[in-house]
Design a protein around this nucleic acid. Structure first.
Lengths: 328, 328
DNA sequence: CTGAAAGCGCTAACAA
DNA sequence: TTGTTAGCGCTTTCAG
């Protein structure tokens, strides 16, 4: 029942533990000795203890990821990207989500630090900044996703979308589809959403269109969406397009529209963030983020561990379908 | 740059390492001493090494999860459930996916074993059976998801849907909607799909309806779906409903239908596995699995670590919407 | 090429 | 209440 240790293997093989260690990790050993060791390994079903190993390395080979909502298509793509390069580098991914806790993930980050993860990828809010900074200072490369860091210390990187560009892309497309008055749904106070709003506002302004403050509504969860959309539509009857600034709310906003009997795009235009599996079928036009590549890059930053802070910005992409009407 | 160790803390606080260990883990220490220690911890930004700790416990406090496709709504729900109870038990989730590799996850399971995970949850195919059995034999509780294990050794549990019941539920609903000839899309050779097919066949048979072998088509990926659906429809012109036996293919099958100009449910009925966010909006009737509860249960089996093997079966639930037409 | 011995950072008796 | 002393399972000098 008790697990075999390297000592047991050594005993069975009739060699020293040092020798066993060497054949396991590819040191110089005589063919014949190695064979004896492997036989013992087999017989005892020996599995080296990676935990003990990492004591010497000072850290584990695991990449930590703290995400606040796996449900969103963006994070799913991100995870796949991360997992992919982790796998290619014989790393595992240690995952913790925070969507239940208001605490914003400080606890998770602490735990990851205690686990001596090789690096950390975080998507949670600024409250965690301090912890992340200290981890980076302690030598663990950290990557912050979907948010840039002001004045980053050496090992604190970031991977983010050019949110203003995303906003502008939205404005351009809406305008080219003849929309004149947009209503916006944002979610919580994430900085990325500010960028998008600003980009949108600017893009609209360049075409002489306004985005008044009361055309922007923030919702905290899916339950609020229907009421928020309703209020927006009633308050501003001129609105001819609804823009959803976060992929997390796409379903809810879309349902809010259709369940009011509004036809998309005839009665109202609809534009949202993040491509998703059903979008082609539904004809929903989106601004796509390269979430998969972003995940890969984040993980690569961990693996390559550059000395300076690197801030990567990715370009959004308009994936035009039919939900805003005919373009041009 | 070098991390502080418990020894450093002891030195700064002017006490022994044992004392530091005690205040960190809640032993009996004098108020004043504890204060000194905490001060030192603070000053050095000390973070205890969880890896070293688990040497003594013999295993880490991490729950390992090997999943083959995070993209599927079922696995997402499962993950949430797992993460939830892991979190409640101060565990982290170590995640590895296998969807790139043909290798079916043997490597991932080995790594998890080396990481001395507290328990393992696997969703990959039978090829991994041996490894899982050995892990269980070695004392690590393992839970196999969506598949039952024949003749399970002590610590090898399973959490699965009653697939025959799911099939029967499908049959019942289709019949009550007046469908007489169904076409089936399955994916790969997963045993769960056999159960569903059998249940469906039985349920149909009880109503005097047949499910001939050529009405069942298996596809390996989304690219094959359109052709497969086309072939099925052309070969069996009587088909008035398409059943998709895996949530993983829902989008592709649905698109295959609509892109052929078929209206759901008027031209053809559509029924699939696993509820998903857009299903209400699309009116897609599904057989739901309690994926979230299944994840929770799987994680609880790890945490509670019962001596015998336990096999949990969950009941599927029909979530009737409009895609099969009017029922009754 | 191989073994003995000294740790890695921490916990757990056992004394004091 | 505290400190001393063994280890945990492994890697890594340093001799042989």
């Amino acid at each position: 029942m008790k697990r075999a240790t390297i000592g047991d293997v050594a005993a069975v093989a009739g060699v020293s533990v040092a020798t066993v260690s060497r054949v396991l990790n590819g040191g110089a050993v005589k063919e014949a000795t190695a064979a004896k060791v492997w036989a013992a390994v087999d017989r005892l079903d020996y599995s080296p203890n990676a935990l003990t190993k990492s004591i010497f390395a000072g850290r584990s080979s695991t990449i930590g990821v703290v995400i606040d909502d796996l449900t969103s298509p963006f994070y799913l793509g991100l995870m796949r990207g991360i997992d992919e390069v982790a796998d290619a580098n014989d790393s595992l991914v240690m995952f913790a989500s925070t969507f239940r806790h208001a605490g914003s993930g400080a606890a998770q980050i602490r735990t990851m630090n205690e686990q001596r993860v090789r690096g950390l990828i975080v998507t949670t809010v600024e409250a965690t900044d301090d912890r992340t900074r200290r981890m980076a200072a302690g030598g663990t490369p950290c990557v912050v996703v979907a948010r840039s860091v002001q004045d980053p210390p050496p090992r604190l990187h970031s991977v983010a979308l050019d949110n203003r560009a995303a906003g502008r892309l939205m404005a351009e497309h809406l305008i080219s589809c003849g929309r004149r008055s947009v209503g916006v749904i944002t979610s919580g106070g994430r900085p990325s959403q500010h960028g998008r709003t600003e980009g949108l506002r600017q893009g609209l302004a360049e075409a002489g269109l306004e985005l008044p403050g009361d055309a922007v509504t923030s919702v905290d969860d899916n339950e609020q969406v229907s009421a928020a959309v309703g209020a927006l539509l009633e308050h501003r009857t001129s609105v001819d397009a609804i823009v959803c600034l976060t992929g997390r709310r796409t379903v809810a906003v879309h349902s809010a529209l259709t369940s009011r009997g509004l036809a998309i795009p005839d009665d109202i235009g609809f534009l949202t963030m993040d491509d998703f599996a059903w979008a082609p079928a539904l004809g929903v036009t989106v601004i796509g983020q390269p979430s998969h590549r972003m995940g890969q890059k984040a993980a690569e930053l961990i693996v390559e561990n550059p000395g300076e802070a690197v801030q990567l910005t990715f370009e959004p992409e308009l994936i035009a379908r039919t939900s805003c009407g005919e373009s041009g």
